[in-house]
Amino acid sequence: MLNDLEYFEPETISDVITFLAKHGKDTKLIAGGTDLLVDMKKGKVKPKYLVNLMKIPELSHIIEDGGGLRIGATTTFREIEESKLIKEKYPLLFEAARAMGTVQIRNMATIGGNICNALPSADIPPALVALDAKAKIVGQSGERFLPLEEFFVGIRKTALESDELIREVHVKSPPAGSGTAFLKIGRTASDLATLNVAVRVTLENNGACKEVRVVVGGGVGPTLIRSKRAETLLEGKILEEPLIEKTAREVSKELKPRPTSIRASPFYKIEVSKVLVKRALMKALGRAKAGEDR
């Protein structure tokens, strides 16, 4: 059962900010509700006020401008999955979005909600980080941008202040010569990730690796892990299988899975991360070479 509460349905972002400034500590913002209501049913959170963001038009959009994409915070996973623009130009986001949940969940859950919930096993954050995504955060003191990997600070903990909300997620368009891949292991098709990996490889004209992102999620630490080691090892190099394999082994050393996960032991996650990272890099490399991604 849900606790008694007061419910608000603002129509503008500034109304939300004003409300949060006053009642931030006692308030939960609700979008899709697929995580929040489960927590509330279990009594894990008991907000005094519930502020529904779904009636705010300026929070829901997928817009391409300049060198990237702006996704409004209450854009649903289904909208991302069904966006032609995203499927064609940001296939990594498409793949990660449709790997999440079920049709019903994706119809309800929003990108902003997913990010703010900060589950270490979430599917779309690694993809976003691989595309150098930033969260556009708004609050009483104005707006700020935060690289997404800095937004996650712990298990279900974010850098968001109690008077702030995410307004948009900005994603850079993958530069020419890029290839991406998203791989996930779950026990069934619609499971939370035992492990997920999002990879972007951007090649120079001469075929060397200009830029790489290897992001591992699925409960491999309090937050997802963007492997700096992979970037150091691969950038500027010609990517070949032995180097990629070595990199994958190195990436696995950066992971710190909790021993309490029911999905898999730390040993399994680390072992399989080597495989998944390697496969994702090989797949992204192949796509970069084929010019499949823009």
Binding site: Y7, E9, I30, G33, T34, L37, V38, L50, N52, M54, R78, V103, Q104, I105, N107, M108
Partner: peptide
């Protein structure tokens, strides 16, 4: 669109 009524607040279907 199919959604889950067990995770939907009735007030939001206004």
């Amino acid at each position: 669109e199919p959604v889950l009524s067990c995770l939907t607040l009735a007030i939001t279907v206004d």
